[in-house]
Design a protein around this nucleic acid. Structure first.
Length: 192
DNA sequence: CTCTGGATTGAC
DNA sequence: TCAATCCAGAGG
């Protein structure tokens, strides 16, 4: 897609990508229609990072992380939810940015139906929630983010002072690293 | 093959 | 605060 961020965007340092994805738009054109939102929360997962799925080497689940840059790594967790990551770095270097929350923009009615709620701030305020709201499942694992029905567009760049860096959510290893980024005071972030 | 626990969510 | 729910990953 002309308007999507180019594949080369994802070759930047993974922390830089995690920061720069804030404000960008995640769009998915599903069979049932388009749904999209502005990215307001991300987390970086690095190669030398015990909390990353890629830390112990390639497996059937995490294989996309070891592949070329700019593709979606979608996995199933807790027997119930999907989470979507943007794979960064060249082939062989397994790093990614977990997209944790969106501010809903397009397809509100479809999101409300999928999420079974009409409360806007409950539609995309968590990694599992936003996948459900957009209709993203394991079928999108390995999909390009720079071309096709699942893509990330540039958005309004937030002011540097608006970006907060803190520790990641829900992990037990490397839990002290400041690799979570979100937009200050945004009502759609995943916690509180 | 069995066992453990998780990049979560929503109900209590 | 805690159970649901299932599969990936580790170990035998």
């Amino acid at each position: 897609m002309l308007e999507a961020l180019p594949q080369s965007f994802y070759l930047q340092d993974t922390v830089t990508v995690a920061r720069q994805l804030l404000g960008c738009m995640l769009v998915y054109e599903s069979e049932r229609g388009r749904a999209s939102g502005r990215i307001v929360e991300t987390e970086a997962y690095l190669a030398a990072d015990e909390a990353s799925h890629s830390f112990r080497g390639p497996t059937a689940r995490n294989g996309v992380m070891f592949g070329p840059t700019g593709y979606a790594y979608v996995y199933f967790i807790y027997g119930a939810h999907f989470c979507i990551n943007a794979v960064t770095q060249p082939e062989g270097v397994a790093e990614a940015v977990l997209i944790r929350a969106l501010e809903p923009v397009d397809g509100l009615a479809l999101m409300m139906e999928r999420r079974r709620t009409t409360v806007a701030r409950n539609l995309c305020s968590g990694p599992g929630k936003l996948c459900q709201a957009l209709g993203i499942t394991g079928a999108q694992n390995g999909a390009a983010l720079f071309d096709g029905r699942l893509r990330i567009r540039a958005g309004e760049t937030p002011a540097a002072a608006e970006v907060v860096a803190t520790t990641r959510v829900g992990i037990t290893k490397a839990a002290d690293l400041p690799l979570r980024f979100y937009l200050r005071d945004n009502p759609h972030i995943s916690k509180r």
